[in-house]
Design a protein around this nucleic acid. Structure first.
Lengths: 233, 233
DNA sequence: ACAAAAGTGTTGGTGTTACACCCATGT
DNA sequence: ACATGGGTGTAACACCAACACTTTTGT
């Protein structure tokens, strides 16, 4: 606190003096939508501190990988997925956020299609939890999770990130259901559909759903790139 | 790369094994508007690497301070200011971004009123530079600066962050000039003013400018909190 | 025939854009 | 009197919110 504050320019001396360095991790908020519920993947902690509480999956940054690569690696370990929508959320670094040592964590959020995720039961102590009724979380992970929901909503208002939650072919109701789940409110069907079509967010495949006990719905595919900026709400 | 990848849960062992930890810094993008130009504060590097190039002011995180505190400390060192608009931008962590050692940097951007900044000439090798014609920057600071301009614009579209650039009392033209400078384009005066008034972004003080060689302008003050969310453009 | 979800248009109100002239002051 | 920037209203258009009935299929 009262020791010399090294200037950025003098990093060589800083190294020689071996000042303490913080640990740096990535933590992942892995979102999916399933059964009209927004869910995120949590891992139960098996040791001190916060043993038994649920935590966001995370790992340490390795010296030769970028932050995004670390996030992708962690995501792959937990879900078997690659090439999903992934975005840096925020960096959390209060000194007391981890009682063991100084840990700065870079949060990333990922949007995944539930059907494409490797069966999570293969992994010990990993489960999907509703974002709307989270258990008690370890460290400051509740703050991180809350913030990630805010950012997810902001992103989905003006981009096509929602494709991530859907299979290749989907109905307009599927699309709308995602929005109603994530925003936890209803939208007018006619107005919602009009916008999806006018802004070329969806593209007709010519196919229809089969085997449903009501009128079949047209199937659409994405009409823009994943994550492209378009006003949706 | 092929060594064991420690799981988050096993941090105690990780510590004992003394894996390398990255250095963590904050870098600041300190914006101001002066003479119809968007400017940011740069420091000339006086040693390897990139000696002679300009760099964003930054410093190392200390073990007992939060990221935001580190950013405030750095801002104070360079400008003498406290309590300014300050927001985390993004965290940059490519392994090769600094040739000396692994450095992860958390970018923060600050918006300051030029008149309130301590005279920068007191400090060696620190200068304001136009964001629209930056010199060659050290490290990946050009990328950081570019991204910060994008984010500054996004923020100013829907919040009152622009108050930061203005004195307590200002004219509607002053406010508009800030926007025209930051967005590098013109806005219709009547439409712009209508919105500022209708959304209570400005509040009449009853005073007028004095000593100008044209019609005096009404003086306003901020009508909302700094950084409050309101659509402005 | 009934249940279930799909599909579809119009209207009134609101907000946005584009545009031109007079006013108050200092020199 | 001139130069300089300050101040103001309106019309056309685009967008948005609210609203209910018919269609297609499976059981």
């Amino acid at each position: 606190m009262t020791q010399e504050k090294p200037e950025f320019d003098s990093l060589e001396e800083y190294d020689e003096e071996a000042f303490d360095r913080p640990s740096v991790t990535v933590d992942l908020i892995i979102f999916t939508v399933k059964d009209d519920d927004l869910k995120l993947l949590l891992k139960k902690r098996d040791s001190w501190p916060d043993e038994g509480k649920w935590a966001l999956p995370g790992s340490f940054i390795e010296m030769d990988e970028s932050l995004e690569d670390a996030a992708k690696r962690t995501l792959h370990e937990k879900t078997g997925l690659e090439d999903v929508y992934l975005e840096q959320l925020y960096t959390f670094g209060k000194p007391e956020r981890d009682p063991r040592t100084r840990v700065i964590t870079v949060g990333y959020y990922a949007l995944v299609n539930y059907e494409e995720v490797r069966d999570v039961d293969e992994l010990e102590n990993i489960e999907w939890h509703s974002a709307y009724s989270l258990p008690e979380l370890a460290f400051d992970h509740e703050e991180i999770a809350d913030y990630s929901i805010e950012r997810l909503r902001a992103k989905m208002e003006y981009s096509t990130a929602a494709y991530s939650f859907l299979p290749e072919k989907f109905t307009l109701s599927d699309f709308q259901d995602i929005y109603e789940t994530v925003f936890d409110r209803e939208f007018d069907r006619r107005n919602f559909r009009r916008k999806l079509k006018k802004k070329d967010i969806v593209e007709d495949t010519g196919e229809k759903t089969e085997g449903v006990s009501h009128r079949p719905a047209k199937l659409y595919r994405k009409g823009r790139e994943l994550g492209e900026i378009v006003e949706i709400l």
